[in-house]
Design a protein around this nucleic acid. Structure first.
Length: 595
RNA sequence: GCCGAAAUAGCUCAGUCGGUAGAGCACUUCACUCGUAAUGAAGGGGUCGAGGGUUCGAGUCCCUUUUUCGGCUCCA
């Protein structure tokens, strides 16, 4: 497959190559625009790039455009493919480009052209296929006939240039391939991913629920609560090992505190407030001011530092409607927070320690993650020097440990720069989980101090950090990552005991009671149903182990064991004694933290 | 918040032109006493998200509203 660059250079490459694939999708995006202009001549084009999975194109339609209108566009695009139009590139002057777009009413394109020449872009190119031409830097594939399979997947709104104050355009998403088989494969993969959706699994497995009575406020059901508690338990052990002390601060504090911390000025829109005895209170959106107050309750010496105060803090934030997403984005969540108070000299070691801790946890769950460094935002407080020092502190910690990261300009918290850890969900969307934020502001605003070796009062530096991020979001990610098949140590229910018939009910119950006594999370299915039916039910719940207790097992004082994950192709492990099974289980679910 | 779509039994969904609200699974009862992914029969279960309107009559048409879904923006 040949790719045409804007210089006119032609390169041969395969569809599997990133550059070729993107050129392929980009050309398909142009075909979409071409089809739109054929069917809706009054529509105006925005931009239409290739993305990681396919492409999109933004349009302003004269009348409402809905998903029902997609098939007609798809048909027109197939027609354009069949026409096998050659794709060519030509250099144009700004004047010609503006005139061409002006004649066609393309005001968005004109805006782009003006902006490109204002930013000193000396070369403008048009790509042309048949009657359709547009401003584009390429590259593209060389013929529309190469696109043999395509699908327009969804319609969504998107602000022009991504800015909330701009007009909202209609964005059409799609994907294309050089053959039908690959398109089918892609669509099947999407179906698979839907099966892992934590919202679906959360319902099916009885983990959590969100109801109309509390939008964005999740309910944890018994099984989900077990999972949450296991994660908390693991977290506590780790933090004990790492020298953290755990605290708990109030969920609601007086307005003055939030004024001192700066939240009232910088975060007010997201805070819930209430009035008690005619005084205004805010429900905490973050735990830091509470942690700050704990630090200040007694005087500190440099010898005590670093002080690491951990808190599983329940925070509430008013996320705008339309932004919630299962457990991933909620209005009330538990942060596995900690605030570290330290001297300037301790910064590298402490940041390094947190980086290692986060890596240990993510590795434990088998996650791959990427790291971003977010720098000073427009709405922020503090001096330039402090921001510079703080940002430099994070950079050198990352570089000392050889962590690869990308920079996210202007995306830091209002009080300091941050390192973010992003994890992927089942369809490849990424979610920020862990974060490490360095803060010079808050200790200063609160007048926090410690006594140095020379007897002088100094202001400590503070780290805010979370590992899971939010336990809710982390559970969402975990559920999708494991597709609901939680490893034994995390599984809310580890074993289900099945009686074979009414004759084996008593024995099955005995087995169940013994497992419970051994501390194994188990359930008993003594319903009067066939074995196949009960196995199916247990399999659908994705339980790690199924035990069958029938008359034969009772005679031999054994149980028949069936496991969820086939080992060497076997799910049926045959019969064994209960003590043997229990010790096998205990070995498999061994303590998650090496202390 | 914005653009688009959706909401019917516990769950997944059907419901034609506006004319007495349905299926499968789940649940309860009965029969069967069963060996590794669904035994059979019977029964209970609905203010069709909420509020208003049009109509002799609304799950169905119109308006408002809430929630959810796909995105945008924002964020853990």
């Amino acid at each position: 497959m040949k790719v045409l660059k804007s210089s006119g250079e032609v390169r041969e490459g395969s569809f599997e190559e990133q550059e070729v694939k993107r050129a392929f999708w980009h050309t398909t995006a142009h075909m979409l625009a071409q089809a739109v202009k054929r069917l809706y001549p009054e529509a105006r084009c925005g931009i239409g790039p290739a993305v990681d999975e396919g492409f999109y194109y933004d349009f302003e339609f004269p009348a409402a455009f809905t998903e029902q209108d997609l098939p007609a566009l798809e048909a027109e695009m197939y027609k354009i493919a069949k026409e096998a139009l050659p794709v060519t590139v030509e250099e144009v002057t700004e004047k010609d480009a503006l005139r061409y777009m002006g004649e066609r009413g393309e005001c968005y394109k004109q805006e782009l052209i003006r902006e490109l020449s204002d930013t000193g872009k000396d070369r403008l190119t048009f790509y042309r296929q048949g009657e359709y031409a547009e401003l584009c830097a390429g590259p593209h594939v060389m013929n529309t006939g190469l696109i043999r399979a395509l699908k327009l997947t969804s319609v969504a709104g998107a602000y022009w240039r991504g800015k909330e104050e701009n007009r909202m355009l209609t964005r059409i998403y799609g994907i294309s391939f050089p053959d039908a088989a690959r398109l089918d494969g892609y669509l099947t993969m999407l179906e698979e991913a839907k099966r892992r959706d934590h919202r679906r699994l959360g319902k099916e497995l009885g983990l959590f629920a969100i109801r109309e009575e509390g939008p964005g406020f999740p309910f944890f059901l018994p099984r989900g609560m077990v999972l949450k508690n296991i994660l908390i338990d693991y977290w506590r052990r780790l933090h004990e090992r790492e020298g953290y002390q755990e605290i708990s601060t109030p969920i609601m504090l007086h307005r003055e505190l939030w004024e001192t911390s700066g939240h009232w000025d910088h975060y007010r829109e997201n805070m819930y407030t209430t009035v008690i005895d005619e005084r205004e209170f805010a429900i905490k959106p973050m735990n830091c001011p509470g942690g700050m107050l704990v630090y200040q309750m007694e005087p500190h010496s440099y010898k005590e530092l670093p002080i690491r105060l951990g808190e599983l803090g329940l925070v509430h934030r008013h996320e705008k409607s339309g932004q919630m997403h299962g457990l991933m984005r909620v209005r009330c969540f538990t942060q596995d927070d900690a605030h570290i108070f330290m001297t300037r000299e301790q910064i590298p070691a402490e940041i390094g320690g947190v980086l290692r801790l986060i890596d240990e946890v993510y590795t434990k769950f088998g996650f791959s993650y990427h790291v971003e460094l977010s720098t000073r935002p427009a709405d922020s407080m503090g001096s330039d020097e402090d921001w510079e020092t703080a940002t430099q502190g994070l950079v050198s910690a990352l570089e000392d440990l050889g962590v690869a990261y990308t920079v996210n300009e202007g995306d830091g918290a209002f009080y300091g720069p941050k390192i973010d850890f992003h994890l992927q969900d089942s369809i490849g969307r990424t979610w920020q989980c862990g974060t490490i934020q360095l803060d010079f502001q808050l200790p200063m605003r609160f007048g926090a101090e410690y006594t140095g070796a020379d007897g002088k009062k100094e202001c400590p530096i503070m780290i805010h950090r979370v590992v899971y991020g939010s336990i809710e979001r982390f559970i969402g990610i975990l559920t999708e990552h494991y597709a609901g098949k939680f490893p034994l140590w995390l599984a809310p229910v580890q074993v289900r005991v099945l009686s074979l018939s009414e004759k084996s009910e008593v024995y099955a119950r005995q087995v169940y009671e013994k497992l419970r006594q051994a501390g194994i999370r188990c359930e008993l299915d003594e319903r009067n149903e066939k074995l196949g039916y009960k196995i199916r039910a247990a399999r659908l719940m994705k339980l790690p182990y199924i035990l069958i207790a029938g008359e034969k097992e009772e005679r031999e004082q054994q149980i028949a064991v069936r496991r969820r994950d086939a080992e060497e192709g076997r799910q049926d492990l045959g019969s064994m004694s209960l003590p043997a099974f229990i010790s096998m289980l205990q070995k498999e679910a061994k303590a998650p933290v090496a202390l």
